[in-house]
Design a protein around this nucleic acid. Structure first.
Lengths: 196, 196
DNA sequence: CTTAAAAAGCAACACGAGTTGCGATTGGAG
DNA sequence: CTCCAATCGCAACTCGTGTTGCTTTTTAAG
């Protein structure tokens, strides 16, 4: 299908306009973010937004899903410590900017909005699952014993980063990411995540 | 001052009634939690609540401050690993039940409400400050070198617990708390939090 | 080119949060 | 006991979110 065939029907156009407008408003902090404002910025009636997405969170979820489907280059340097460090830096970069704001917005409305909670859970589950490969590689290399709990290790690695993003308002700099990775590496090497 | 002297003036009575009502509603999940509902349950006009506390978050902050002023028994067993484990279990207990819901409610409204953000930050800062003593004791015993970054270590310890509380909807059981403590201990012993 | 289904626009409305002005009550000072 | 200041209750109002019924436009099939 040639790209110039047709820019899309009205529905497609509306959908794109809304998502673009939401993206733009998100950059101004999401105190500014309401369905009505998005609709206005998109030159679309708010009813259309409500009917298609139900919710503000629905729109945010749609935006997030674009990131979720991106291919993430899981580090595989041959050394567990370096892999985890690169992973932490990767997560850090993913948190600064738009996806970070999306996660924050959705996470904060999760307790009141079951769908938002599901979106956030799904996002984390997918990312954690991908990241587990790093631990898997280390096991394959014999750097870690069979049965090491990859899921738990990745959670320990990511938690401090996300806590700063969501709660504590401190900068998530490279130094912090590196130290967090070092802590997870030390715990893994000490056998904290081995079975029994 | 004898307890039977006087139950308090009307203001005191109103204040107590509101806080008690809020406590009761909080138990039903905070989707139920609104200023109007609290006022109604307290037998008080909502205007009084708004005037005194400004906000729903103000009421929650008042409730939380009661917990914050509680004396926390910082573990001091003479062994870093055991101290951190007990600390993690202590945090876990503090998260299940009312204070956990307060923290969650305040943390989720923090991005939209600067006062809520300040309350949460203050709470975490105070708790982290208290918990640092555990690392301090280990340094005093010579178990850890001078200059070990206690603040960072405690953050690493607490983060996985709070991430589960706020985002991931998985149970925070004792096993999880113990493993988190073990991870932090391993990182500390490996020198991750030493200067340079 | 017709036509029927789907989706968007429009306007009116419901609903709850938060605000405001004023009168009534209360508690403590003199 | 009297009186003043503080606080509360009450009612009306504003404002923004989200909903609903209906009309108009668009799309794609025949």
């Amino acid at each position: 299908m040639p790209a110039s065939q047709r820019p899309g029907g009205r529905s497609t156009r509306v959908r794109a306009a809304v998502l673009t407008a939401a993206r733009g408003l998100l950059a101004d902090g999401y105190a500014e973010l309401t369905v009505e404002r998005i609709a206005q910025a998109a030159g679309v009636n708010k009813t259309s937004v409500y009917r298609r997405w139900t919710d503000l969170e629905g729109v945010l979820g749609d935006l997030l899903s674009e990131y979720a489907s991106e291919v993430v280059p899981i580090p595989d340097t041959g050394d567990l410590g370096m892999d985890l460090e690169e992973l932490a830096l990767l997560v850090r970069r993913g948190m600064t900017g738009e996806p970070g704001e999306l996660i924050t917005a959705l996470a904060t409305s999760a307790p009141r909005n079951p769908r938002a909670a599901q979106i956030v859970r799904g996002f984390f589950a997918e990312r954690f699952r991908l990241a587990e490969a790093v631990v898997g590689h280390a096991i394959a290399r014999g750097e870690l014993p069979q049965g090491t709990d990859a899921r738990a290790a990745i959670e320990i690695l990511g938690a401090p980063l996300f806590l700063r993003l969501l709660v504590v308002d401190e900068p998530i700099d490279e130094e912090f990411a590196r130290r967090t990775a070092a802590a997870a590496t030390a715990a893994l090497r000490a056998g904290v995540f081995e079975p029994r």
